Every structure is written in structure tokens, then in C-alpha cells.
Simulated scan of single mutants.
Amino acid sequence: MSPRRPERRSEEAANAVIKAAMDLCQEVGYRKLSIEGIAARAGVGKNTIYRWWPSKAAVLLDGLLSTWRLDASFPDTGDFLADIKTQMAAASRILGDPDVFPHYRALIGEAQHDPELHRALWERFIGHLAGAAADRIRSAQRAGQIRPDADPDLVTELLYGAAYYRRLLTTRTADNAHINAIVDLAFTGLAPPAESTRARSE
């Protein structure tokens, strides 16, 4: 699912379509959202939307990506625990935005039976964040702060999977205390062996 198709002729009309999709999804929910409704709200023809986007999910994904300004880069202060907590807390705050999170949750659900949307979510959003996390984990491994045999991708899934689970599947709050608990608990098993730590300090 690529970004808006290049033959669009009016950026103003395209932005109106995106805003209409975001507003309507908030008002009626993703299941009741339709291309017809988006077109009526935006004041454009249905065929115009289909020339620019293949589906309502594609419109909504463009809307989310234009709304969320999540920096994929990680801080690197030399303190991995502090850095990962800072980034995960920032991501959790954005995911918790009540104006956009319902849309994201709807797209996550839709992606389970729409392979094109699933691929687009990964390639255009989630994959960038996961890659940045894995890079920061490798940096921590080189600094001796994480076991060298730990798979960075698996560590990313371990840390962020817990946060996603709470945000997407429970009614509990994924707040800073929850993020800190995830990282602290996981790091107990990710820390390098004590003898390696002693050897570096000698």
C-alpha cells in the first residue's frame, strides 16, 4: 500500500480527503467509515479518491503518518536503560493520543486480514521504529551493557511487545511506571554476566 498515487492534481483536495477520513473515523468508527462518506465530507468525487488511494485504510494511514511526528532516532547518552525508557515513554504517549489511537488500533485490526495494509504499516511506520531500536540495542551490546548473545530484534519484540499488549489488548494504562517496569524486569535477564562487568572495571 503505497502513499498517495502521484497523479493527484490538488494537494488541497488531498488534504481535505485525509481530514475527512480522520474526522469521520473518530465520529463513526472505522467499520462504518466509507469512501462514499469521506468523499461527501471532503467535497470530492468518490472516483477522485480511488485515483489517489486504493482503499479507506490507505487514506487513514496517510492521515496517521501526517499526524504522528514520532522521531525514530534514539537518544544515546551512554545509559541504555534511561535511553530506552525515554523512547518507549515517548512512543507510548503518542500511541495513547485519544485523537489518533482509535484510528491506529483500527488499522492494526484491519491489517490482520489485509496483507497489503500489513506490509504498508511495517514498511512506512513500525519497521523504522523497530530498526532504530535494534540499532540502539547493538550499541548497548558494543558498550557491554547487554548480553552479546541477545538477538536485537528479539529484544525489541520483548520490550515493545509488552507495551503494545497493554495498549491494544487491555484496558490498563501504559504509563511511564509501566514502561519502567518492563525495562527493569527485562534488563535483569539481559544484563551481561557479573564477571564480564567486573573484568571491564578492573
Rank of each mutant, 00 (worst) to 15 (best):
G131L: 02
A143H: 11
A72D: 15
R41T: 11
D76K: 08
D23A: 15
Q141V: 00
G43S: 09
H103G: 13
A14H: 05
L117A: 04
I94V: 15
P115I: 00
L154E: 12
N47I: 04
I179N: 04
T188R: 14
D99R: 15
L65C: 00
Q112D: 10
F125G: 09
A40S: 12
G37W: 01
D79K: 05
A133K: 05
G109F: 07
P98W: 02
V155F: 04
N176A: 01
V17I: 15
V17F: 08
R69E: 15
L158C: 11
L190I: 02
G43P: 11
R93P: 01
L185E: 03
A194V: 15
P148M: 12
V17R: 07
R167S: 13
T197S: 10
L24F: 12
M22S: 06
K85E: 13
F74D: 12
L70E: 15
P98V: 06
Q112V: 12
G161K: 02
R200F: 01
A89Y: 07
R31C: 01
W52D: 04
E11P: 03
L159R: 03
V17H: 09
I137D: 03
I126C: 09
E7L: 11
Q87F: 14
P6S: 11
R9H: 12
Q112G: 10
R142I: 03
V17T: 12
A174F: 02
S2K: 12
W122D: 14
N176E: 08
A181L: 13
L33A: 00
L64I: 12
A133D: 07
E11H: 10
V17D: 01
D83E: 08
D83F: 07
V44C: 00
H118C: 13
P6W: 08
R51F: 04
A199R: 12
R198Q: 07
D97T: 12
L33H: 06
T48E: 04
A177W: 01
N15A: 14
L81V: 14
Y160F: 14
I137T: 03
Y164I: 13
A133H: 13
F125W: 11
D71W: 09
A134H: 08
T77H: 02
D99V: 11
G43T: 14
V183T: 07
V28L: 00
P192W: 00
E7I: 08
A177R: 03
I49G: 03
N47M: 13
T170Y: 02
H113Q: 13
H118L: 12
L61N: 11
P115A: 05
A20L: 11
V155T: 05
E7D: 13
D76A: 13
